[in-house]
Computed example of a mutant assay.
Amino acid sequence: MDRRLALVTGASAGIGAALARTLAARGYDLALTARRRERLETLADEVRLRFGVEALVVPEDLAEPAAPARLLAAVEAAGRDVDVLVNNAGYGLPGVFAETGWQEQADFLQVLLHAPTELVHRTLPGMTERRFGRILNVASLAGLLPGARGHTLYAATKAYLVRFSQSLHLETRSQGVHVSALCPGFTWSEFHDVNGTRDLTRKATPDWLWMGADEVAEAGVEALEANRPVCVPGAPNKAIAALGRLIPEDWALALMESQGGRLRKP
């Protein structure tokens, strides 16, 4: 098989599906994973018809600790290597930390922290051996800003992905492997629908802060091919990230609390 394979997690909707289409348009075969088989099958049929690539569907729930190993075993059983890894699977967990159940938080950490780290650790040796690899960790603008009240572990895990990606970038840039962290801001996807915050978030944020999933995906793949360690798509998001670095941290925390207050109002 001449074409390289891209494994995309959380590929059933939103940025994940957009990243899958963007990679397929560039000639990559796909391995698609998420919990919803029907969505994955629909996307697989679409990319086969539109782009003439192969698409392997492997439904998995990355909240299960054994899922990363099963996922890669399925790819190996199909006779393929992972040349591109896109760690996109994720979600938001509303509420303050002490008022949520531990199993909810443990599952969250498994999906957003442990699973992407394990997938990188399992696929990176093959990439370096073949002298070709691409790793895109979908983080968030939240990972570049101070923490906020609620969704307590979200910004923390996204900050981890940013720093993890930067370190990997330095470790692998002479080995044919590109590593980037994609840090989108507000994006049109199912993210806010799943956690029930769509209406509140829309009322609290202006339209100009929102980007489409397709443009976020295109920016992320371009950054990955250029081997830029961090990609913040969109001029407003770049300005917010720069402001977060420049102003004193107590000011930044006050701004985060003010924004969080608007998002909490009924």
Rank of each mutant, 00 (worst) to 15 (best):
C183W: 11
P184K: 02
F186E: 04
F186T: 01
W188R: 08
W188Y: 11
W188N: 03
S189M: 02
E190C: 06
H192S: 07
D193F: 07
V194E: 12
V194I: 14
V194M: 07
V194Q: 12
N195S: 12
G196M: 04
G196N: 05
T197P: 10
T197Y: 10
T197I: 03
L200I: 08
T201H: 10
T201Q: 04
T201R: 12
T205H: 15
T205Y: 09
T205K: 03
T205R: 08
T205I: 14
P206Q: 01
D207M: 03
W208H: 03
W208L: 05
W208D: 02
M211L: 10
G212V: 02
G212D: 08
A213I: 06
V216F: 02
V216G: 03
V216Q: 04
V216I: 09
A217E: 05
A217I: 06
A217L: 05
A217N: 06
A217R: 04
E218A: 12
A219M: 04
V221R: 10
E222Y: 04
A223H: 08
A223F: 10
A223P: 12
L224A: 13
L224K: 11
E225S: 08
E225A: 12
A226S: 13
N227E: 10
R228Y: 04
R228L: 07
R228F: 00
V230M: 01
C231A: 08
C231F: 09
C231R: 12
V232E: 10
P233A: 01
N237G: 12
N237E: 08
K238P: 02
K238Q: 09
A241E: 03
A241P: 11
A241N: 03
A242E: 06
L243C: 11
R245H: 08
I247Q: 07
I247A: 06
I247P: 06
I247E: 06
P248D: 07
E249R: 14
D250N: 13
W251G: 10
A252H: 05
L253C: 14
L253V: 13
A254F: 13
A254G: 13
L255D: 08
M256A: 15
E257P: 12
S258Q: 14
Q259E: 14
Q259L: 15
Q259R: 14
Q259Y: 15
G260F: 13
G260K: 06
G261K: 12
R262V: 09
